[in-house]
C-alpha cells in the first residue's frame, strides 16, 4: 500500500507534467493556426509539417543548429579532455580544489555567464581593448553578433558538462595500464591511443552528448551573442510562438527538433544507466 504511494506520487506527477504535455504538443502541431484564443483550430492538418519541410529556410536553420552544436561540442572536447586528464593526474587535494573550480561556474547563473561575454566581446570591450593596446589591430574587430561569438558562448557555458564525465572515467582509470603499455614497448602517444583513449570513450561520449543536446535547443546564447540573422532553431521556435503566435508551427518545430534529438538522448540515457550500474 505505502509502496504503491511512494511510486505513484512521482509517477503521476511525471505523467501529467512531463508525458501529457508532449502529447499536447504533438496534437497542436497537427492543427491549423487561427486567430482565436487559443490560436489553433480543432481540426487536423499536416500543413505545418509540409511548410517546415518545404521551406528551405527551416532546413538551413536546423542544419546550422546541428553544425553549431557539433562545433561547440568539438571545441569543448579539445579543451576539456586535456583539462580533465590534467585534473585526474593531480594529487587528491589539488584535484578536489580544481574540480570545485570547474563546478563553481555551473552554480553561477547561466544567463550572467553569457552576459559576461557581452562585455568582453563588445567593440569597445576587453578583448578589443587588449588587441588594440598590443597593436595587433588598429580597428576594433567585430566579435559580437557573429557565429564566432556563439561558438565561444556555447563552449564556455557547456565546458563543465564535458569535463565532469571525462574526469569521472579518467580518474577511475588505473594508471598502471598506461605504464604496462609503455613497459610492453608502446611509445607515449601509442599508449595514449591504445589504452587511455579507448578506456575514456564512455566519458567522451557522455560528455559530447551532454554538450550537444542542450546546445541544439539553445536560445539565450544565440539571442544575446549572435546576430539577428544568425538563426538557430531554439530561437526560431521561441519567435514563432511568441512573436508570430503560430502555435502549430512552433509545435511542429519542437516535434522535429525532438525527433532529431531522440537518438542522442536515448544514447545518453543508456550510457548513464550503465554508469549507474557500474558504480553500484
Amino acid at each position: 500500500m505505502w509502496r504503491k504511494a511512494i511510486i505513484a506520487a512521482p509517477y503521476l506527477w511525471l505523467l501529467v507534467f512531463f508525458l501529457a504535455p508532449f502529447a499536447i504538443v504533438l496534437r497542436i502541431s497537427l492543427a491549423d493556426p487561427v486567430i482565436a484564443q487559443p490560436p489553433y483550430s480543432p481540426t487536423y492538418s499536416p500543413d505545418s509539417f509540409t511548410f517546415l519541410l518545404t521551406d528551405k529556410l527551416y532546413a538551413i536553420t536546423y542544419l546550422r543548429s546541428v553544425v553549431m552544436a557539433a562545433g561547440a561540442t568539438l571545441l569543448c572536447l579539445l579543451l576539456g579532455f586535456p583539462m580533465a586528464y590534467g585534473i585526474a593526474r593531480c594529487s587528491p587535494a589539488t584535484r578536489s580544489m580544481l574540480l570545485l573550480l570547474i563546478i563553481l561556474p555551473f552554480w553561477i547563473s547561466f544567463l550572467l555567464r553569457v552576459y559576461a561575454w557581452m562585455g568582453l566581446m563588445n567593440n569597445y570591450g576587453a578583448i578589443n581593448n587588449l588587441l588594440m593596446w598590443l597593436g595587433v589591430v588598429d580597428q576594433p574587430v567585430q566579435l559580437m553578433y557573429t557565429d564566432f561569438a556563439i561558438f565561444v558562448g556555447l563552449a564556455y557555458s557547456y565546458l563543465p558538462f564535458m569535463i565532469l564525465p571525462l574526469y569521472a572515467t579518467l580518474e577511475r582509470m588505473d594508471l598502471d595500464l598506461v605504464e604496462a603499455a609503455q613497459d610492453l614497448g608502446a611509445s607515449r602517444s601509442r599508449a595514449f591511443w591504445d589504452v587511455t583513449w579507448p578506456l575514456a570513450r564512455p566519458g567522451v561520449i557522455a560528455g559530447c552528448l551532454l554538450v550537444f543536446i542542450p546546445a541544439m535547443g539553445e536560445y539565450v546564447i544565440p539571442y544575446l551573442l549572435g546576430g539577428s540573422e544568425s538563426l538557430l532553431i531554439g530561437r526560431v521556435l521561441f519567435d514563432e510562438f511568441f512573436v508570430n503566435r503560430d502555435w502549430p508551427l512552433a509545435s511542429a518545430v519542437a516535434v522535429i527538433l525532438l525527433l532529431l534529438l531522440v537518438v542522442p538522448i536515448v544514447l545518453l540515457q543508456r550510457y548513464q544507466a550503465r554508469d549507474q550500474e557500474g558504480t553500484a
Binding site: V16, Y219, G234, L237, A250, A254, L257
Partner: peptide, 12 residues
Amino acid sequence: PEVITGLSLLLL
C-alpha cells in the same frame, strides 16, 4: 532542451 520543455508545459 529547455525550449521544448517550456513550450510543452505552457501548452499543457
